[in-house]
Design a protein around this nucleic acid. Structure first.
Lengths: 226, 226
DNA sequence: ACACATCTGGAATGCCGTTCCAATATGGAA
DNA sequence: TTCCATATTGGAACGGCATTCCAGATGTGT
């Protein structure tokens, strides 16, 4: 549980096990084989140790997942650059989008963190990165929370949706499967979904994603700029 | 896997096990004890049967969860009433919001269905319920998919966030805990989140939720109504 | 009354997260 | 240098889970 407060020793019996080394290995396993690829079995094998050793550094699997998620998100968020609030928000959104593309397991984790663990480190980090620029858009403080929520949920939801497509064999195959199943729906009950299925097939993820952001930003700004 | 094509027999050895009875029991267990409350152990106990019997009607737990989610969503979506597109969309949103309040496990399931199983029955059902009214807002067809995505992700994300608060002891206690942990963040790194934490405390879920919807609708409409 | 397909209950399997503990390292005190 | 308290490790053991397997009961058509 508690880390020592002194220098790290030069060399341990094999190669000092540490919280960071565990988290790093966890991220690698998640990247390689998704959420199911991270078990204490695979983790102990990769680190050539036992379960007890890991549990000395990490409380449980949930904490490990939270820490791994936070580490990846921290790296993904861009350092503050000096642009318009819209540009800043777009940069954050793209940073998360790309991170989810690199680590497809991230999408689910982020949604979980946001809904089930808003007190943890991940939710505030993302909330802050977006919300920081909301005031500069002319949104009155009373609406800051709502406006930021809309943006964050859209970003994570959509990025997650498109990123999941990457995991399966190829993106095209996945989108094609979904589009086909949508086109096979009952025409009476699903006229809209069937019609939109075509847009799903040839669909530039990144472009659509940014279009959605702009749409939300338009709503956020026009609402209060009169 | 396959249902018979004939009449259901009047009476079975105890009380005909059927796909519907299993799904019904699953929903009850989920409502009573959340996602962790649904295991094949609890399910067989409640239905007074064995695991094999259940597996004859249902492929696996994932399918059971999907079916349970779809059943609850189907009941939650309002029958078409004749109002403005905005009113229709608000009605669907509130229908989902209330369903999530009644069945807190639903939030996570819906997010999963949307991102990991868009080919299943749940995603199209929700997409259609919202998207059906998008055209009437004056949105050009090219933007239908994006606009609907924004709305759906916001609705599910936010409803999920607020619903999770219900599960824990009391809503107030949960919000208070989260707000406190946000207020304890580093003032240098988290000025926005700390400031917004106050809005979290006294916060009418439903009102905030509808405000968010209106915000998105404003963006969707003003963007194309010139 | 017989045979066959449908349906059931529960035992067995293998994997998972977690706990427990005996054994081993480490750094400072003597 | 020796020794000890404390920090750290590896792996065995545990209970719970989803899922599989199968012997047998049930109901239907003949």
């Amino acid at each position: 549980m508690c880390q020592d407060g002194g220098m790290p020793p030069r060399t341990r019996r094999t190669e000092a096990l540490s919280r960071e080394r565990i988290v790093e290995a966890a991220v690698e396993l998640l990247d390689a084989a998704g959420e199911a690829g991270l078990t204490f079995r695979t983790l102990t094998e990769r680190l050539a140790t036992g379960a007890g050793a890991i549990y000395w550094h990490v409380a449980n699997k949930d904490e490990l997942l939270t820490t791994a998620t936070d580490a990846v998100v921290a790296q993904a968020l861009p350092a503050a650059s000096a642009g318009s609030p819209q540009e800043e928000i777009r940069a954050v959104a793209l940073g998360l989008f790309d991170a989810i593309e690199r680590h497809p397991w991230l999408a689910t984790q982020l949604l979980m963190q946001l809904t089930r663990n808003p007190g943890g480190p991940v939710a505030p980090r993302i909330f802050e990165a977006i919300g920081r620029h909301i005031g500069a858009l002319g949104v009155p403080e009373r609406s800051w929370f709502t406006a930021t929520s809309v943006l964050v949920h859209y970003i994570l939801g959509t990025a997650g949706q498109t990123a999941t497509a990457e995991v399966s064999t190829t993106r095209e195959a996945f989108l094609d499967t979904v589009a086909s199943s949508w086109e096979d729906l009952d025409p009476e009950a699903y006229p809209f979904t069937r019609r939109v299925a075509r847009q799903l097939r040839n669909h530039d993820d990144r472009e659509q994603f940014l279009a959605g952001i702009d749409l939300v930003l338009a709503g956020v700004t026009t609402r209060h700029s009169s």
